[in-house]
Design a binder for these strands. Sequence first.
RNA 1: GGCGGCAUAGCCAAGUGGUAAGGCAUGGGUCUGCAACACCCUUAUCACCGGUUCGAGUCCGGUUGCCGCCUCCA
Length: 467
Amino acid sequence: MSIQIFNTLSRQKEEFIPLEEGKVKMYVCGPTVYNYIHIGNARPVIVYDTVRRHLEYRGYDVKYVSNFTDVDDKLIKAANELGQEVPEIAERFIAAYFEDTKALGCAEADVHPRVTDHMVQIIEFIEALIEKGYAYESQGDVYYRTRKFAGYGKLSHQSVDELKVGARIETGDKKEDELDFVLWKTAKPKEISWDSPWGKGRPGWHIECSVMAREHLGDTIDIHAGGQDLTFPHHENEIAQSEAFTGKPFARYWMHNGYINIDNEKMSKSLNNFVLVNDILKEMDPQVLRFFMLSVHYRHPINYSQQLVEDAVAGLERLRTAYGNLKHRLGTSADLGDHSDIWIHKIEAIKTAFIETMDDDFNTANAISSLFDLSRLSNTYLLEKQTATIVLETFIAVFDELAGVLGVPFSQQEELLDEEVEALMAERIRARKNRDFARADEIRDLFKEKKIILEDTAQGTRWKRGQ
RNA sequence: GGCGGCAUAGCCAAGUGGUAAGGCAUGGGUCUGCAACACCCUUAUCACCGGUUCGAGUCCGGUUGCCGCCUCCA
């Protein structure tokens, strides 16, 4: 069975066939680095990191590129407000981006291109568009001649004529047509700028992605992804630029993720309800946030609230406990031949279901339920009086494998308790043996204060970190 | 005005023709010295109306409600 991807271009699921067998060229629109990322920014990073993990898990060699917009109006505004230089701010928030996304389990892209490193290519690209008649200079600005590109609107499925009617498009006397969008903006006095054939200025927002995608992945890429709001105009404009330039299809599969709402409202500055990743990670396990995001299909909206996060905590805890209990049992398991095949067969069936649902347009919500199926199965297996090492190891291996695809690993660093705590633990075991339950409970409460949960099982006492 | 999405149990959420996954929460039971973990059981006919079909949450038409894009935006 092949991988299916919902392609915004066709608005349906399509079989994924990469341009080059076994290889995937993937471009994900990255952030404008003028602030810390909020959880809405984090969603695409997590979603497409998971897409990448799954593609790699399925044997593809993925080249993953995600840009930083390190110069634009918002950055200039931020620079003015803070009294700092644009590069200084960009640098700071790029560092913060890496810190936040790493905590969320997102691998770095193979390339993180920055706009300011591609000025030469951007200018060349624009010059070529002018030469081909797709762009024109006007008082230091350069605009794209939108109506000239026949395929305009094919991604967002809008006709240029309809766009013209209701759109709140600024009409400036610099433009030939109100649908035209800017490729190069002339700089205001003292603003950060680069020399160009049209004078000092900086690139428009859309051109950068066309240029950097081509620079690092070639004329045609396999998957281009981003938030739903980028479909129009950003991605539509990228297509217009790139396809006018190369004469080839720009991207074969377009993926767009849904929004995040806060308490059922859109995040917005006016409502002042932005949730910054950097802030919530001070109080929240980053894996919980990732798990929470993946518990909903990527194309659907997610509502974010304290209550829902707490539910996610409970769910993730269930999986972690199952995993931890397997590890604990490993210490007392034996080489039993009996019935092991049956259990292993069941584990494999769950793994297969996981893969199939991920193949089907990256249905992480279903994939997570496979993980719950696996934990129920393992919990049931642990009810056995004697467990086989091979079965436990299979459980653990599959847990690791599947959780790895989702980027929510359960394996913690092997942690040791310090001597004092170990001594108390030993004392409690003796106390229980002597049926001195008062002392045993006292010690258990002591541990609880240290946020260590003790659980007595037929195979001895196990412990885990808890609330 | 144009384009699009959503409406499934108390909450969250899968499910694109064949008698409603999963999680959280609730209640009951088992296990336990007690507890915790866990296990078992328990809770829906899928916004509404009409149609197609042997059969629809799942397709078609309509109604209602909510949301997004068309302007910087993940």
